[in-house]
Every structure is written in structure tokens, then in C-alpha cells.
């Protein structure tokens, strides 16, 4: 997934756990996250890792998510 040449990190958003609160979107300093359109089983349109090329693996998005649905690797 999202194997970018420029990225120094990678995240994974748990599609079923996300409640689409949008808090992670402005939290990412690299603007990597956007809101998606696919609806999960809870009825929310989960956030998506839209621009993986710029991810630094800083984990700010993960620390921000109230539902702990973001995992981060470097």
C-alpha cells in the first residue's frame, strides 16, 4: 500500500473504527489526511490517508485521534 519514494513514514487508519470526527485532518502538519466517502459499518465516512508521499511518521495524527484508530510506522 502507498509505497512512496519520498515518504519517511506511513500510517494506517482503521476504516471500521473511524468516527469521521475530522480532528486528524488539520492536525497533520503535512496535510496527508482527508475525509473519504466510503461509509463504514458504524455509518461514518472514514478519514483516508490521501497523500502518503509527504508523511514523515511524526505520529501527530495518531496522538490526536480520540478513538486510537491510527497506527504509524517509520
Amino acid at each position: 500500500m502507498g509505497d512512496s519514494v519520498t515518504a519517511t513514514g506511513r500510517i494506517e487508519i482503521d476504516f471500521e473504527r473511524c468516527k469521521a470526527c475530522e480532528l486528524c485532518v488539520p492536525a497533520c502538519p503535512k496535510v496527508c489526511i482527508g475525509m473519504g466517502t466510503a461509509i463504514n459499518r458504524q455509518g461514518y465516512a472514514s478519514a483516508v490517508f490521501e497523500r502518503p508521499d509527504d508523511c514523515t511518521g511524526c505520529a501527530i495524527c495518531a496522538e490526536t485521534c480520540p478513538d486510537a484508530c491510527i497506527l504509524v510506522w517509520r
Binding site: M1, G2, D3, A7, G9, R10, G57, A59, A62, E63, A68, I70, L71, V72, W73, R74
Partner: peptide, 19 residues
């Protein structure tokens, strides 16, 4: 190996054990 797996192998944020 898929570059994503090989390059980003160190977990820097995971759910806390006590959560």
C-alpha cells in the same frame, strides 16, 4: 520485499497496552 513493508517497519505509534 514490498518497499512499504521493508522501509516502514518500525511502529512509532500503536494503541497503548492498557487501552
Amino acid at each position: 520485499a514490498p518497499p512499504g513493508k521493508a522501509r516502514f517497519s518500525k511502529a512509532v505509534y500503536a494503541r497503548p497496552r492498557s487501552l
